[in-house]
Write a protein that binds this DNA or RNA. Structure first.
Length: 968
RNA sequence: GCGGAAGUAGUCGAGUUGGCCAAAGACGCAGGACUUAAGAUCCUGUCCUUAGCGGUUCAUGGGUUCGAAUCCCUUCUUCCGCACCA
């Protein structure tokens, strides 16, 4: 059936908008429900994966609407940071990939000129997100309340928030080391490489700079190490003879380091100045005094030293560093030491590895052991050797760190475990002035702008004090009392909250965002301005409709409407906002808040959600704390990666909606898996959902169109019982926000029931309309457009989007009616099962229902089970007391035993239904149906019947609920 | 390393307060119906065995229990977070 989904969807979306169903207005007489999804950062076009979470939010909101709630579902975007700037820059310089990406996603070429300007990028994507994604998917979001973190009124809110944090002593200043680009300022180094063109996997490492005094030259050779605990094993020093080193003056001392390192030092230490250069070859052969060890060691040449890492000078600990062991062996064998550098053989011979750490499973020299074990000496391919050496280094470091113990040669530190010694020894050397701490990236990192990123010290950095004990304790307590899904998040968040310390909250340099209210050289960074914002949706409406202006939104305004502090006339006087309006806004804020659900992807679990909770706890009173957080997992690409926005693998959203329809995609998201697992994007699967929906649509269409009507019978009771039961299931699933279970009920179970009803010849018009009323209404949250279409077709009143889901009618629920059909299905299934085993054609079957005495026992057993007195001896005793039963002796006691055991494990309602059922009458009435289903003649008989036709003596095995079957 | 999660049939995935679980649903596959236009629809089947019985399963090996996919421990494997990144 060809159906123009786009047109149909647009029609209903317009109807919703015309009826203003999406607009959230305070209604003091009605319970409210406020749900948001964590607004997306503006980073370009979104992909089909993002819509997963957003769709959940809309579906939950719609469900709440149809169960009596006044719902607010606002949306917004997050533009803070440098994403938009870097995107605009790339567009401005006509970066080919970027332009191609934009065009492919439907950006008109004419827009490209304008988009070189960051704020234009923001404006453009604000429209794209709202129109091409959220409206297109049929979200009943209150677009009037849309806000963006770069709006001037939003900035006022953030300023107020920071004023509050400061008042509560939660803002502090201290020095801070951050990766920074010389022109763009601090950048984020992470695998997504949002800010970078290279090096997203780099880690910041804390090196210990060791100072080696060189008496003859009166300067320090400065080596960087990650293993300060190995200083007692130093035997020599490595420098590159083929490069020039820089001499810098640091607080009056002269340090020799690689030129790259000199630049880095300037970023992290004060008073670093250039003081000349020295050729590397001039360093070879010098003697220098090793820190802590206090021994003179010689400088040897080495070609493995990389000037870009650390200081470009390396201290040698052959016992525990495979590279050092290897290099030392080579160096000693190198005649240049004597011939070229004039080092005396005595000095060379004196360089012997010192055993300093004992590790279980290793000998005196772990570095040598690991190389022997890995047979590195036998390797020929240089690339393989390099890889193996890297591996060897890691292994020996790891084992040493966890199992190693310092040996006696290690002075005061002897006997300590390596991980203890590491910190203590570093601290000791720092205290004695022999070492300083230096931070460096472990690989090259290049900013989007093309410059190399280094670690830089930033003084007077502002932090939010998330480590505050009281705040942490209060937040943890609240997190125990609220709704958090999935359960492991509920547990983990406690630990995450504990682990939070200070967090840098402002940035220098070119960033989009709100200026820091206490010093406008800083810009508030992206996470810190997106923690309290849901409450702002209750206010944004007034700014968006120009009822208030940004510059009227002074701190006292927020104090009044949010915290109910201050005097309305004074606030009105100072802001120029009428008192009535102030009170109206205040009433709105307190009607809608607290937030009921904040829904976001799993990436928010350790960052956004905890700070969201902490900021609420820090600033708002008890009755405004968030009530729930729902975390959704991702839609991933084929290779299990998160579908990457930048890599452009996924289909653009508008194309996907056009292909499958918004409802099919919504159903796909809701039903394909639990919220809490990743799913792989699979177009075929989406197509399947589309087909399933179409099948449901045509089923409903046919039911509505059918002219037939028939009197109601047992199958009608069955259908209404089932559908009313489903209503309860839907409600209990949604109680837990379990959309998957809910959609399973609505789109699978109910569809199957409807089919069975038709198959059983159900044709009662009134029953059908009652069932459709329930069914179509149940489809509204997830597939609203199709529900609307069917609702209209069935002639129901108004829009289903504003209809209320019927309550389950307990009078319609009948265990007996439901049991009958299950019974029938299992009889048919048994007949088929047995027929499969029989050779030759089957023409006839006889179904024997259980004899009266078995039914009598069963009834007794059920009655006893209801009273809770059922047991094998009790039941047997009771049976034997009956003279009629006693005649059957052993058969009775066996059956009583079996019945008692069975009943203990079956559902009592089912058992009762069976006990009340007249099986024989039921089977007689269903005879024709069974016959039609199986294609064979059916006879029904009771095992007690006189002149029973029972050639195979089957009737004796019949039990209640399980007729015996004979085939011929 | 630290912390967390998870391993279920050909596949994706339910089921994890222990019992009604040979284990939902979907997909795939096989047979049939309808038809020969459809990535259509509808039935039936899909661990082994078998007149519906029974047997053996839920990464692995052990344990607790009258009873375990579900609880405890071994081992193996996979995934995720670890901070200034939304």
């Amino acid at each position: 059936m060809a159906r123009d989904y786009a047109e149909m969807e647009a029609k209903w979306q317009k109807a919703w908008a015309d009826n203003r169903l999406n607009e959230a207005e305070r209604d003091d007489g009605k319970p409210k429900f406020m749900i948001i999804f964590a607004y997306p950062g503006i980073t370009g076009f979104l992909h089909v994966g993002h819509l997963r979470g957003y769709t959940y939010a809309d579906a939950l909101g719609r469900y709440k609407r149809m169960t009596g709630y006044n719902v607010m579902f606002p949306v917004g975007t997050h533009g803070t940071g440098n994403g938009c700037i870097s995107l605009a820059n790339k567009i401005a310089r006509k970066d080919e990939k970027t332009v191609d990406y934009l065009v492919r996603n439907g950006c008109p070429e004419s827009m490209l000129e304008e988009l070189g300007e960051p704020m234009k990028v923001v404006e453009y994507f604000n429209e794209v997100y709202q129109n091409d994604y959220w409206r297109r998917f049929g979200f009943l979001a209150d677009f009037r309340r849309f806000t963006c973190t770069l709006y001037p009124d939003y900035a006022k809110f953030i300023e107020w928030q920071f004023t509050k944090l400061k008042e509560k002593d939660l803002l502090i200043q201290k020095p801070y080391y951050a990766p920074a680009c010389p022109s763009c300022g601090p950048v984020a180094v992470d695998p997504s490489e949002t800010d970078l063109s290279k090096g997203g996997l780099a880690e910041t490492q804390e090196y210990t700079l060791l100072k080696f005094w060189c008496e003859s030259k009166q300067f320090f050779l400065v080596a960087a190490t990650l293993r300060p605990e190995t200083v007692y094993g130093q035997v020599c020093f490595w420098a590159r003879p083929d490069m020039d080193y820089a001499i810098v003056s640091v607080n009056g001392e002269k340090w020799v380091v690689a030129p790259e390192a000199a630049e880095k030092l300037k970023l992290q230490f004060d008073g670093v100045e250039d003081a000349g250069t020295i050729p590397g070859k001039d360093l070879i052969g010098l003697m220098c005094r090793a820190p802590m060890l206090h021994k003179e060691i010689p400088v040897f040449p080495a070609d493995f030293v990389d000037p870009a890492i650390g200081t470009g000078l390396v201290t040698s600990v052959p016992s525990d560093a495979p590279a050092d062991w290897d290099s030392l062996e080579k160096a000693k064998a190198n005649p240049d030491l004597v011939d070229v550098y004039g080092i005396s053989q005595d000095v060379i011979d004196a360089v012997q590895p010192i055993s300093i750490i004992s590790i279980k499973g290793y000998g005196d020299f772990p570095a040598k052991d690991i190389m022997d074990r890995m047979k590195i000496a036998d390797m020929k391919d240089p690339a393989k050797v390099k890889e193996a050496m890297e591996e060897a280094k890691k292994t020996v470091y790891k084992d040493g760190y966890h199992m190693g113990r310092m040996k006696d040669v290690c002075g005061d530190f002897a006997g300590l475990s390596v991980n203890e010694a590491k910190d203590k020894m570093r601290q000791a050397m720092v205290d004695s002035g022999e070492a300083v701490i230096f931070r460096d990236l472990n690989m090259e990192v290049v900013c989007r702008c093309g410059k190399t990123v280094h670690i830089r010290r930033i003084d007077d950095q502002w932090f939010i004090k998330y480590g505050d004990e009281q705040l942490t304790a209060d937040t943890k307590k609240h997190a125990r009392d609220m709704f958090l899904q999935p359960p492991e998040f509920y547990d983990n968040v406690q630990g995450t909250l504990d682990w939070y310390r200070e967090r840098a909250c402002v940035r220098l340099g070119k960033w989009l965002g709100t200026k820091f209210p206490f010093d406008d050289k800083w810009t508030i960074e992206a996470i810190s301005d997106s923690t309290l914002y849901p409450i702002y949706y209750t206010i944004s409406l007034y700014a968006n409709t120009k009822q208030i202006e940004a510059d009227q939104m002074k701190p006292e305004f927020f104090d009044y409407v949010i915290l109910e502090e201050g005097n309305v006339d004074e606030v009105s006087a100072s802001t120029g906002i009428p008192a009535e309006l102030l009170d109206k806004i205040k009433a709105d804020v307190h009607y809608w808040y607290p937030l009921d659900i904040n829904l976001g992807g799993k990436e928010h679990m350790t960052v956004h959600f905890p700070v969201f909770l902490m900021n609420h706890r820090a600033i708002l009173p008890d009755d405004m704390q968030p009530k729930g957080i729902l975390v959704n997992w991702y839609v991933t690409g084929k290779n299990k990666d998160k579908i990457s926005k930048s890599k452009g693998g996924a289909q653009p959203i508008p194309g996907a909606v056009a292909d499958y329809g918004a409802d099919a995609m919504r159903l796909y998201y809701a039903n394909v898996a639990s919220m809490f697992v990743d799913v792989e994007w699979d177009e075929d699967l989406v197509f399947n959902y589309k087909q399933r929906l179409e099948r449901i649509v045509s089923t409903v269409e046919e039911l509505i169109a059918s002219e037939e009507d028939a009197p109601a019978g047992s199958i009608d009771m069955w259908l209404l019982s089932r559908f009313n039961t489903h209503l309860d299931e839907i409600r209990s699933s949604m109680e837990k926000y379990d959309l998957r279970q809910m959609t399973l009920t609505v789109y699978f179970d109910m569809a199957a029931d409807m089919r069975w009803y038709e198959r059983r010849g159900g044709k009662n018009k009134a029953t059908i309309m009652k069932a459709l009323r329930i069914w179509i209404n149940s489809m509204m949250p997830v597939t609203p457009h199709i529900a609307e279409e069917l609702w209209a077709m069935a002639g129901f009143e108004g829009l289903v989007a504003s209809a209320q889901l019927p309550e389950c009618d307990p009078a319609a629920v009948s265990a007996v009616a439901e049991y009958g059909e299950n019974y029938l299905q299992s009889v048919i299934s048994d007949v088929n099962e047995i027929r499969k085993m029989v050779d030759g054609d089957v023409t006839k079957t006889v179904l024997y229902t259980a004899p009266g005495w078995k039914n009598a026992i069963y009834k007794d057993a059920v009655a006893m089970a209801e009273e809770g007195t059922l047991g094998i001896p009790e039941l047997t005793k009771k049976c034997m007391a009956d003279p009629e039963l006693k005649k059957n002796g052993k058969a009775v006691s066996d059956f009583a035993k079996k019945t008692a055991i069975d009943l203990k494990r079956t559902n009592l309602a089912t058992a009762k239904a069976l006990a009340e059922m007249d099986e024989k009458a039921f089977l007689v009435s269903a005879k024709d149906f069974i016959s039609a289903e199986t294609g064979i003649t059916v006879d029904v008989a009771g095992a007690d019947d006189e002149n029973l036709y029972d050639p195979a003596n089957k009737a004796r095995v019949a039990t209640p609920g399980r007729p015996a079957i004979y085939l011929e």
